[in-house]
Simulated scan of single mutants.
Amino acid sequence: MGKVLAVANQKGGVGKTTTCINLAASLVATKRHVLVIDLDPQGNATTGSGIDKHELEYSVLDVLTGQADLVDVIQISEHGGYQVLPSNRDLTAAEVVLLELENREKRLLHALQPVRDNYDYILIDCPPSLNMLTVNALVAADAVLIPMQCEYYALEGLTDLIGSIQRITANLNADLEIEGILRTMYDPRLSLTMDVSEQLKQHFGQKLFDTVIPRNVRLAESPSYGMPVLAYDKQSKGALAHLALAGELARRHRNKQRTATVL
Rank of each mutant, 00 (worst) to 15 (best):
K256Y: 05
N9S: 03
L249H: 05
N9C: 08
N216F: 02
S224T: 15
D233K: 09
E156A: 10
P128W: 09
A220Q: 07
K53E: 00
G247P: 04
V28L: 03
M194E: 14
V97Y: 04
L91Q: 04
Y153Q: 11
S49P: 01
G66D: 13
Q199M: 10
Q42A: 02
F204W: 09
Y232Q: 01
A241E: 07
V60A: 11
K207N: 12
S224I: 13
A244P: 02
S26R: 06
L23S: 09
V262I: 15
H253F: 08
E55G: 01
D125W: 03
L61Q: 10
D62M: 07
E78Q: 14
L64E: 12
G66A: 11
L5V: 11
L109D: 14
L172M: 15
G80Y: 05
M132H: 11
A250H: 04
V71C: 03
Y121Q: 07
L161C: 08
G15I: 05
A239P: 05
R251A: 14
S129T: 15
K3A: 00
L190G: 00
Q10C: 02
Y153A: 03
E95G: 10
L240T: 14
E105L: 04
N173I: 08
R183S: 10
E95A: 12
K3M: 09
M1A: 12
Q257R: 13
Q75F: 00
V34D: 05
I76A: 11
I122K: 11
D233Y: 05
M227T: 09
K3N: 08
V71Q: 14
T193P: 01
N136H: 06
L5H: 04
A220T: 08
Q202K: 15
Y58W: 04
P214C: 09
L101G: 06
I37L: 15
N22D: 07
E156F: 07
L145T: 03
V96K: 14
L243I: 10
M185P: 00
D52T: 00
I124Q: 08
G81Q: 13
G66H: 02
